[in-house]
């Protein structure tokens, strides 16, 4: 039964691999994290880091060919998610764990009315009748601050603006008051002003409903104000995990430092070039034997290319995957 230590979600050494024409892609290669009730976890990384795949794995939304959860444990409220039957997983999806996605235009069904898409969630999970579901849907739309929802509820996704659509997605996801909300890059496709609104919305609802949130993004700025702790992923692995404040104040990994440096600083000098981490994200099908970040790391040394780095514990809640974790930790701060 439950061995949850008060954790809502425990992921332990999760590995999700994909069979492709080019070979086996180890999209997620041994990640572990925990999430307590009411906590907000941020997962940060570039494209191809495995951040989305890890969360899809939690909901068992990985398409079975070509993907497969190869090993690891996923415990949600003490339940072993991997062992559940299809029907049991479906009972959890949308009801206890909800997910919102990056592009609300493609994530909403263009052929169905908004009302239909909202109503079906509560109809299946809460047993609502049509009327109940309809009223509830209106209620949710109000909660996400859609003006005049009764006029708009029977519209189609293409009649809504980008920001509105994302609100609708949030409304849909929170309809059943799930315990965990996974938000996969919820603001990436929106422009900056709307971004802030959406994040505020999520924050507010989180407080109101007590939902735990996993916020996936490549944008450190987004996680700064929202999360309790952060995981930085790279090439399917966790490169650093730490409480938010600590990560920003004293990062222990060159990759994290690079990411932080890349955030544009309003106080930056005019005319000076913006910082970018040099190089490209790695080809996850053909990883080098050593540290996957080695060729892009400004701190890399010979050992980095030869040997896979250890997962160093800096302090109780702070870990870093690096040969020189402690040194980096020591040298950061005040930057």
């Amino acid at each position: 039964m439950s061995e949850n230590n008060g954790n809502l979600l425990t992921v332990n050494d999760l590995r999700t691999y994909f069979q492709t024409e080019d070979g086996v892609v180890k999209a997620v290669d041994g990640i572990s994290f925990e999430l307590k009730k009411g906590e907000t976890l941020g997962i940060v990384g570039e494209s191809g880091s495995g951040k989305s795949v890890s969360n899809l794995s939690v909901m068992r939304l990985i398409p079975e060919p070509p993907g497969k959860i190869v090993s690891g444990d996923i415990l949600f409220d003490g339940i072993d998610v991997r062992r559940l039957s299809d029907e049991e997983v479906r009972n959890i999806r949308g009801k206890r764990i909800a997910m919102i996605f990056q592009d609300p235009m493609t994530s909403l069904n263009p052929f169905l009315k908004i009302s239909t898409q909202l109503m079906e969630v509560t109809q299946i999970h809460l047993g609502h009748s049509r009327e109940q579901a309809y009223d509830h849907a209106l209620e949710m739309l109000r909660k996400v601050n859609i003006p005049a929802p009764e006029k708009r509820i029977d519209g189609y996704p293409h009649e809504f603006s980008g920001g509105m659509r994302q609100r609708v997605m949030i409304a849909m996801a929170l309809s059943c008051e799930p315990e965990l909300l996974i938000a996969d890059e919820p603001t990436t496709a929106l422009d900056v002003t709307i971004q802030a609104q959406i994040l505020e919305l999520i924050k507010g609802l989180r407080t109101e409903l007590g939902t735990s949130v996993i916020l996936i993004t490549h944008d450190l700025g987004v996680v700064a104000g929202m999360t309790d702790k952060i995981i930085v992923m790279y090439a399917g692995k966790i490169f650093e995990s730490a409480p938010t404040k600590e990560l920003f104040a004293k990062p222990a990994n060159p990759y994290t430092k690079g990411l932080l440096k890349s955030v544009p600083d309003p106080a930056h000098e005019h005319g000076e070039p913006l910082y970018q981490i040099p190089g490209l994200p790695p080809d996850v099908a053909n990883l080098p034997p050593g540290c996957p970040f080695a060729e892009r790391c400004d701190r890399a040394e010979e050992i980095c290319e030869r040997e896979f780095p250890p997962f160093v514990q800096i302090n109780e809640n702070h870990h870093s995957l690096c040969h020189f974790a402690k040194e980096v930790h020591a040298s950061s701060g005040g930057e």
């Binding site: 959890i92 999806r93 994530s107 969630v121």
Partner: peptide, 16 residues
């Protein structure tokens, strides 16, 4: 497509 993923994420039966 993405919206099918959403539908599944909502916990809908495969037939639906």
């Amino acid at each position: 497509s993405d919206y099918i993923r959403t539908a599944r994420a909502k916990g809908l039966k495969e037939s639906k």
